[in-house]
């Protein structure tokens, strides 16, 4: 590091910081989108006809069986053509950026995993929950929003945490489509300064620290949700009220 001036170090650090923000933005946007899509797919495909289930199976099999990198390339290279195909001339005006392609690809892929988790969780809820809600004549929206989904999310939480940390580790792939994210900035800095160890290890540690931190939060959330569940279970006589 001796041959680097303070100003240079500052410059690289700023670049890394900007890259880190882009990575974070990409990751959070993709995860949020994947989550919404996943829950929606789960609800849309649960206990439906054979055609819907088959379509879901194909979707899941494709995106769980293909590298995310290829999906990113496909959306990035073919995105414009797909948009034109879908929306005609209006699609031509939309520019496919690496960021947009990354968000689209990652959320499509991980929506499949999240949908699988949520479906499993809903399947696993006691059937009595549905019957009790029906006996109380709860409207469909309340049944799903207030009764089924909150419980299903608790069951799916460990799996979601899993998806979260795995997806985080795949966001750097978007840099291969040209996104100037954390990893791309680290690569530039490593090449220019001839200090690959410092920059790559620092980048790796940033990823590890972020996922470790969020994992702790998730565990705390898990505990909080469990506490709530135990309190609900205790006064069994209050169910009528």
């Amino acid at each position: 590091m001796t041959h680097l001036s303070l100003a240079e170090i500052n410059g690289y650090l700023r670049q890394l910081g900007e890259g880190a923000l882009i990575t974070l933005e990409l990751f959070l946007t993709s995860f949020a989108l994947a989550f919404v899509m996943g829950v929606f797919i789960a609800l849309a495909t649960l206990s439906r006809g054979r055609i819907v289930t088959a379509a879901w199976r194909i979707y899941a099999s494709i995106f769980m069986g293909v590298p995310s990198l290829l999906v990113i390339f496909l959306v990035y290279y073919g995105g414009s053509a797909m948009l034109i195909g879908l929306f005609g001339a209006w699609g031509r005006s939309i520019d496919v950026s690496p960021f947009g392609a990354g968000v689209a690809a990652l959320s499509i892929v991980y929506a499949a995993y999240i949908a699988e988790l949520v479906r499993g969780a809903i399947d696993n809820l006691p059937k009595g929950q549905f019957e009790a809600a029906r006996a109380l004549a709860l409207p469909r929206g309340v049944l799903w929003g207030k009764v089924i989904l909150p419980q299903a999310m608790r069951l799916a939480l460990p799996g979601l945490v899993n998806v979260w940390s795995f997806m985080l580790k795949e966001t750097p792939l978007v840099s291969l489509a040209g996104l100037q994210d954390l990893v791309a900035s680290a690569k530039i800095a490593a090449g220019a300064t001839k200090e690959p160890f410092i920059f790559f290890i620092a980048t790796a540690l940033l990823f590890i620290a972020f996922s470790g931190l969020t994992l702790k939060l998730a565990m705390r959330l898990e505990k909080r949700l469990d506490r709530g569940q135990n309190r609900d279970e205790a006064p069994a006589s209050e169910v009528a009220a």
Binding site: A186, K187, A190, K194, F197, F200, A204
Partner: peptide
Amino acid sequence: VVFFRGAPVLILLYLVYYGFGQ
């Protein structure tokens, strides 16, 4: 385990390829 599981594969590749060559 924490390091090699927590770091993205892409960074590990860069680290070994560009790092150890130095």
